[in-house]
Amino acid sequence: MTVDMRNGAAQPTQAVAIAIDRVSQRFPGRSGTNPMLALDDVSLEIRRGEFVCLIGPSGCGKSTLLNIVGGLIAPSAGSVRIGRNTVNGARPREIAFVFQESTLFPWYTVLENFRIALKFQGVEGGGWRDRAMAALRAVGMENFAEHYPSQLSVGMKQRINLARGLCVETDIILMDEPFAALDEQTRMVLGEDLSVLLARTGRTIVFVTHSLAEAVFLAGRIVVMTARPGRVKAIIDVPAPHPRSPDFMLAPQFSTIRNDLFALLRDEIRQTVAAMREARDGARP
């Protein structure tokens, strides 16, 4: 395991899929307060096929960074490149999002949801049904194609959300705490599934999480961020190949990395809590 402080450069072995170059993000404050600096000079390179977890205290700008990478937010400074192109808007052909809550449209059946997603992406015509069914089979939900989302449990919906992210066949999938709303057990099962799927498909994944165990179990590299304003505090490698079995959680290596991660995060979390207390007493930015 290596901990290289504040150094986000990728090793030159694999092509760079995502290059985050000195990105800062400032949100306008409410009237009378200063603008809030959410991200401060973040640089990071993510190689093709890599699974990177972003972890950090609440409000450190993890999700903001993800939205910037996906082109949903324009950064105040710096830039993001996907391959050779600078991101300046959503890139549905290259990047899929999976959010914390299901973004399945409740008024369409599961299958219709896939059709709409492909339509949004600009894929028209035949073949969509086969692709959708294949993606549903991959997450074991092929029997629910004609159901409406309201007929499914939260875990099932998130499974399908994940399948939809895979179905659009982008090279990059950005996941914003996709399992956060799930119970611990569902979460573990889905994590395992994801690990298996990944080993098969070789997508590049950036995954925001609050869970130390989840980060260690899933990631090839873990990017630890500081409390607001978010900076890269450390990058931790998790040198274990996918698919990872639940046994990996019992390995000494797992707890060592998890403990290191906890040590790195502890100060940041304290700082965040202190800032929140301060904000409670008045001028919240």
């Binding site: 990047i95 973004t103 449209f105 709409i116 997603a117 949004f120």
Partner: peptide, 21 residues
């Protein structure tokens, strides 16, 4: 807003957001 953001992330145009969301 989540569904709108989801649609936009999938590449939906403004008209598509109105029509389908």
């Amino acid at each position: 807003p989540l569904l709108v953001r989801g649609a936009e992330s999938m590449g939906a145009s403004r008209l598509q957001v109105i029509r389908y969301v």
